[in-house]
């Protein structure tokens, strides 16, 4: 999906978003208030420059517009796979972005992410997955890597993975699987503007993804384990 169409649907009250080298930034109007918009487009590979540009935009929002909500628009093929990125410490750039989003949250910025096209692995973990809540469009693709590559690395035959992907949310790409596991808060269908406004109105809270995964049946053990550690008791199977 191209970001201009998305922005028109999301922000009928108007926006001033610009694209530069697959990096999106600007502001928009939601519910009569201004929000900051930060994101990527064109299945951007997240290299050190675009990670740094996103971090800079988050820090600028915190500094210049205290409390302004941040909307993150996610479309990435994952981290850029280049020697130069590794040499310059891409994990530090990714961590920096994650830390900036986290700082914004702690200073009272509501952060809502939307996967509007692709989300993969390293590009996703420090953007959409660091938001207060992450949502997705029904046609979005969310995954760690494709099944053929996964088959090669895990040495599990691709047919077996394909079969498992039908019934098991762990292996299949797609927002509904991430929804069941609690990684995605909701899938937006219908009026995007209304759902964004609603997400921005919801109070920010602690990380409840493991509990959502338990309730929705996609990750049955994570929350019981966390609870057992917190309560000092044995793990109570879900």
């Amino acid at each position: 999906m191209d970001w201009q169409t998305l922005a028109t649907d999301l922000f009928p009250q108007g926006h001033a978003i610009t694209e530069q080298d697959q990096f999106l930034s600007g502001s928009a109007q939601v519910d009569g208030a201004t929000v900051a918009v930060i994101g990527t487009t064109g299945h951007a590979p997240i290299g050190i420059e675009i990670a740094l540009a996103q971090a800079q935009a988050v820090l600028a929002t915190v500094r210049e517009h205290p409390g302004r909500p941040i909307v993150m628009l996610v479309d990435t093929q994952g981290q850029r796979l280049r020697h130069r990125d590794e040499m310059l410490g891409i994990n530090s750039y990714m961590a920096h972005l994650g830390k900036c989003v986290d700082l914004a949250r702690r200073r009272g910025h509501k952060i809502v992410a939307l996967v509007y096209d692709q989300a993969l692995s390293g590009g996703f973990i420090t953007s959409g997955l660091m938001a207060d809540t992450c949502h997705a469009l029904p046609a979005a693709t969310i995954r760690v890597m494709g099944l053929p590559a996964m088959a090669r690395i895990t040495k599990v035959p691709e047919e077996v993975l394909t079969e498992l992907a039908r019934s098991n949310p762990v292996f299949a790409p797609g927002p509904e699987n991430y929804l069941r596991m609690g990684g995605i808060e909701s899938i937006w269908d219908g009026s995007l503007a209304e759902q964004l406004a609603q997400a921005l109105r919801a109070p920010a809270g602690a990380d409840v993804r493991a509990e959502l995964g338990r309730q929705r049946g996609g990750r049955k053990l994570a929350q019981p384990i966390i609870q057992a550690i917190l309560g000092g008791h044995d793990v109570q199977a879900a």
Partner: peptide, 23 residues
């Protein structure tokens, strides 16, 4: 990093660890 045998669950788990470190 993420355990590919548990692909999607592993990815969310690492994101939770990140948040918990920063908390």
């Amino acid at each position: 990093g993420v355990r590919l045998h548990e692909a999607n669950a592993g990815l969310i788990a690492v994101a939770e660890v990140m948040r918990a470190v920063l908390d």
